[in-house]
Amino acid sequence: MAKVTFDADLCKGCGLCVDACPKGILQIAKDKINKKGHSPAEMTDESKCIGCAFCATMCPDCVITVER
């Protein structure tokens, strides 16, 4: 049981979190654009999240908060 929240407007869509996720449940949203003009990262299936915080560890912009 884990909860991951994205402060989407801070995201620059670099994708480092996507590569870090061991469960492969992160992606760069192709259909969204944030305030800065970037396509932000998002989670596809929260039920599979184990709350490992690898995504947040690799995020250069403190976009991600992880609760477990």
């Binding site: 709350g51 250069p60 912009d61 992880v66 609760e67 477990r68």
Partner: peptide, 27 residues
Amino acid sequence: MAVVFQKPKSLTDAPLHYCPGCTHGII
């Protein structure tokens, strides 16, 4: 549920100007 990862408080709320994927933000 407890917060296990969030932005540290000794960073301000100013958005970082670094390029996407620049590891300065991590450091």
